[in-house]
Amino acid sequence: MRDADRAAAGRSPAHLAEKSGGTQAMTSMQPLWWFALPVLLLPVWWHMRKRERTRTDLLATARFLPAAAPQQQRVLRWSDVPLLLARLALLAALIAWLAVLAMPWKGDTVFIDPSLESSPWAAQQVQSAGMGAATREPLPADLWNWLARNEHEWRPEARFLILAPHAGMPALPPHLAHAADLRLAPAAAPPAAAPSAPPRERHITVSAPAERLPRWQALFAAFSTSADGASRYVISDTPGAATELIVWDRPGAEPPASWKAPLWWRTASKNGKMQTPQGLTWTAPQWPLHDVDAARALYERWQAATAPPSPYPMPAQTLKAERNKPLPIALARSPEWLALALLALFAIERILAHARRR
């Protein structure tokens, strides 16, 4: 092996990325704005017009000459070249700002969850990935969508190391322009003796005849003992803001229009489910249920319908770069340096225009 090969083999990926950083090209997130470049011809046309008028004086001997209509010849010539250049640069900077022109300047980056900042596991993962000199940034909340919107700020050869305690599976596989390595921290051991949390109160409204009300109370008392007593069902006769279920066990009668809840149980001729302005309604021919298996099935169906969705965990994996350049995104923002350049060029153009009038 030659000395040059040995030197290249001994360099870290971060060093190689820094060396090749001078070859990066600018990235445009809204390239259709570049079709507005012909607007740069307007200042050229404006400056090449002859706008100066020559003063005409009559000579005393001109009365002996035959009358002739005056003729003017328009001469195209450059005028106020510094002002012309300032206006051209101002329009070019404006189009670049609208096209979200960005210079990718960031290198290898470690996205780390704040809870893992000081953990030995995170330091070990950074060293094993060869990204000890990489920049560290806090882990965004919506990681994959955030990377798709902002990865134009990173150089093409940059890599991502993602350290998190867990990650939710996205609806679609991430297709990024940079390689990303997702590593998940090992699950922490559960505490030895965690105190039991008090049961959560769940408010229920029951409207039923007096002879059927004890059966509903017995049914919800049985539900309170389910799931290790994590929920306690509080029964009332009128709904409130916290009511999540209304039981209307009065066949042939309609509930008040002001009663509203996310879920209703009503007595009807057949089983069914329909959405009404007052809430989602489940119907059954006989309430309350007397069969233990039917009551258990109803309880499980109720809990599954009201349980908050939990994201499917995403396993640790290495994602290869699947795009040559970042996606053109309409919501991407132009960099701050381009806005400052636009403001400076506008000030210069105004100063030169004022100096020409003077």
Rank of each mutant, 00 (worst) to 15 (best):
T135A: 11
T135R: 06
T135C: 05
T135S: 12
T135N: 04
R136M: 01
R136Q: 08
E137R: 01
P138I: 00
P138V: 06
P138F: 01
P138H: 04
L139C: 03
L139Q: 00
L139K: 02
L139F: 11
P140E: 01
A141D: 13
A141W: 10
A141H: 07
A141V: 08
A141Y: 10
D142Q: 07
D142E: 10
D142S: 09
L143H: 03
L143F: 12
L143K: 03
L143P: 02
W144E: 00
N145L: 15
N145K: 10
W146H: 12
W146Q: 11
W146S: 08
L147V: 04
L147F: 10
L147A: 05
L147Y: 07
A148P: 08
A148F: 12
R149C: 06
N150W: 10
N150G: 05
N150V: 06
N150D: 09
E151N: 10
H152T: 03
H152M: 15
E153Q: 14
E153H: 08
E153D: 14
W154P: 13
W154T: 05
W154Q: 13
R155T: 08
R155M: 13
R155S: 08
R155V: 02
R155D: 04
P156K: 15
P156L: 14
P156R: 09
P156S: 14
E157I: 07
E157H: 14
E157S: 15
E157F: 13
A158S: 14
A158Y: 11
R159K: 13
R159V: 11
R159D: 07
R159Q: 13
R159M: 12
F160N: 03
F160D: 02
I162Q: 13
I162S: 10
I162M: 15
I162Y: 09
L163W: 02
L163C: 07
L163F: 11
L163G: 03
L163Y: 03
A164W: 01
A164G: 02
A164M: 01
A164S: 11
P165G: 00
P165L: 03
P165I: 01
P165E: 00
H166L: 08
H166W: 14
A167Y: 04
A167D: 00
G168F: 02
G168D: 10
G168W: 01
G168L: 01
M169P: 04
M169A: 11
P170W: 07
P170E: 02
P170L: 02
A171E: 14
A171I: 14
L172Q: 15
L172Y: 15
L172D: 15
